[in-house]
Every structure is written in C-alpha cells, then in structure tokens.
C-alpha cells in the first residue's frame, strides 16, 4: 500500500523535476532560436504515435478500470462471508449498502478524521519542506550529506516508521521518559483522544521530505539569469524569495500538496501499525474503517460502498483543484508567466 504510493509519488516527483527542468530549458532556448520551435511543435502534434500507449492503456484498464467497476458492482451486493463463495450471485440489494454506510456507520466521521488529519499534516510539512529546500539550495561544505539525511524519513518504509514510533511512544517509553525529565507528562500517545495528534505528528515526520524533494526540484528550475537580474535590481533575500523564487515553486508544490493529501488520506500502514485494530475511535480513519469492515466483519459489499463513497468525496475537490491549477495541462507546468 504505502510502497505503491511512495513509488507513485517518487515517479511524480521525478517527472515534475524533469518537467520543470525541461520548461526551463525550453524557455531559455526559445528566445534565441525562435523559428525552430513551431516546426518541432507541429511534428509532435501531427504524428504522435498514439498506438504506443496501448500496452500501458491495457495495463491501466486491467489494474484500475476493471477493479473499479468490480468494486462498484460489489457495492450493490449483499456480499459477506456467507455469500462470498458464489459472489457473482450474491443477493443484489441496490443502494442499501450506501444507505447503511451513510446513515448507520462511522463513515462520515472517518472522512472528517482523514481529511482533517491530512490537511493538518500538509499545512505543517509545506513550510518545513520549503525551508529545508531553501536551506540546502546554495552549495556549502557537507551539503550532500545533509541532503541525504533529510531523505531518511522518506526512504524508510511506512511499516518501519510506524513500528519505531510505536515503540518510542509506549507508556513509559523513551518519549515519555525524555519528556518526564523536563517535567512534562503528556499522557497516552497510542490510546484515547491524543491519538489523533500522534498520527499527525508521525505523518509529519514521515512525509515532510517529500515536500522538500519537490521544492528542491522547483528551486533547480530557477534560471541563473533570474537570480542575476534580481540582484541587479537590488532585491534583498526576502523580496527575492517572495517575488522571484516562490512563483517557480508554485507548480511543484501544488503537485506535492495534491499527491501528499491523497497519500495521507490513503495511508493505511501508518495508523494500522501505530494503533492496531480495532483502532481508538479518534483515529478510525477511512482506510482503517474500510479494512475493518472488509476483513474483520467480512462485509465486503458494505466496505466497497464505503470505498466508493470516499472515492467520490475525494474526487470532487480533487477535480476542482486540478482544473484550478491546470495541473492536467501538460503544456503549462505551473510556472507563472
């Protein structure tokens, strides 16, 4: 789960980085060699070998579209351990699962928890990631080492992160002891109302390097000439950062925000390993709820309905957002023109 997500994220980061670099190269090459660019564009528009998309397309259909359709189909069935064996002929109950999910299950509470925890984690990681990227932008002795260290939380598998934190946060564990020496008694980390903040905290620790990575890729795209020009204009560091550098970061960071949010909302491993099942009511986030409904209560139909509802709930703001920042338009990779 998390490995998939992180692979996806890594790919996205790479493509964002290369896109940003590409656009920078484009921008610099366009001015001197004006006549060559329309010809290149015409070629790529006219004879795009779309058939080469077929293998990827088929794969996408098999691993995304078909399961999605099956999931929607399942959500209309009364599918549980009694009917699983001949699941295609499980009783069709229409929208009953959806009604149950919305009215008599903790689904909406879970959605609220998932979204609020993801947003909180995101709001904290954004400035952290940007600050780290800016701090390691200029060359200094040992920069490579620092940059590598920054990436450690990101390369550790979620499972490891969660296990280590769980051990540290145990009652009378290392965190409690450390805080105890300065006279702070926080109480339980892994049970009760504070679990929500524990989850946010660990998520922040685990995911800020991702923001850092994308911010770094955005910084790499800032042309040298721009730095020079702003220096000539006498811009001091804050103005330079605010009006010259940050606009370059808008694209990559929008992408980071989007992917990060989706990743947090879908993060199963972290809460599962940190808190176990059944989870305390304050961290019964969407993936945990869906998991428990499927694999502890064996209500496959109901959990498919839950998953579908959450997909729709997430897709609406996602779609609006994608349109707003035009991330789906490959020709304008976010850089303010």
């Amino acid at each position: 789960m998390s490995t998939d997500a992180s692979n996806e994220v890594r790919l996205a980061a790479e493509s964002a980085a290369s896109r940003a670099a590409h656009s920078a190269a484009d921008a610099s090459s366009q001015e001197p060699s004006g006549p060559s660019s329309p010809r290149r564009k015409g070629l790529s528009e006219r004879n795009r070998p779309l058939w080469m998309l077929i293998p990827g397309g088929v794969l996408m259909i098999i691993i995304i579209v078909v399961p999605l359709l099956l999931g929607i189909f399942m959500s209309t069935l009364n599918l549980d351990q009694y009917t699983l064996r001949k699941w295609v002929s499980a009783p069709f109950i229409g929208v009953e699962n959806f009604v149950e999910a919305m009215t008599s299950s903790p689904l909406l509470h879970s959605v609220w928890l998932s979204v609020s925890y993801s947003l909180l984690a995101m709001v904290v990681t954004l400035p952290l990631g940007i600050a780290a990227a800016v701090a390691t932008q200029n060359a200094f002795k040992g920069r490579a080492v620092i940059r590598s260290i920054f990436l450690i939380p990101y390369v550790l598998p979620s499972f490891v992160v969660a296990t280590v934190w769980r051990t540290m946060l145990q009652p009378d564990g290392i965190v409690d002891k450390a805080l105890g020496t300065v006279g702070i008694d926080v109480g339980l980390w892994l049970n009760g109302p504070q679990t929500f903040w524990t989850l946010v905290l660990v998520q922040i620790w685990a995911s800020w390097p991702f923001i850092y990575l994308l911010a770094l890729s955005g910084l790499q795209a800032v042309d040298h000439e721009v730095h020079e020009a702003s220096a000539l204009d006498g811009a001091l560091w804050w103005n330079k950062l605010r009006y010259v550098v940050f606009p370059y970061l808008k694209g990559p960071l929008s992408l980071a925000f989007l992917i990060g949010m989706l990743h947090h909302i879908n993060n199963f491993t972290l809460p599962f390993v940190l808190f176990g099942v059944p989870a305390p009511a304050d961290v019964e986030v969407l993936p945990i709820l869906t998991y428990v409904t499927s694999f502890q209560s064996f209500r496959f139909g109901l959990s498919a309905a839950m998953a579908f509802i959450s997909l729709v709930l997430i897709a609406i703001p996602l779609f609006v957002y994608l349109r707003a920042v035009k991330l789906d338009d490959a020709e304008s990779p976010g850089a303010k023109k």
Binding site: G187, P278, A279
Partner: peptide
C-alpha cells in the same frame, strides 16, 4: 460466522476504555 464481529466488539470495549484505565 458472526464471531469475528463479536470478538471485535469485546475487544473494542477494552480499546476505548484504555484512556480511562490509564
């Protein structure tokens, strides 16, 4: 076949009571 849910329910009472216990 309902035992899975029952076991979960029995356990959940303890899980949600742990903060009080502490």
């Amino acid at each position: 076949g309902a035992w899975g849910d029952m076991q979960l329910g029995l356990l959940n009472v303890t899980v949600q009571s742990v903060p009080d216990l502490a």
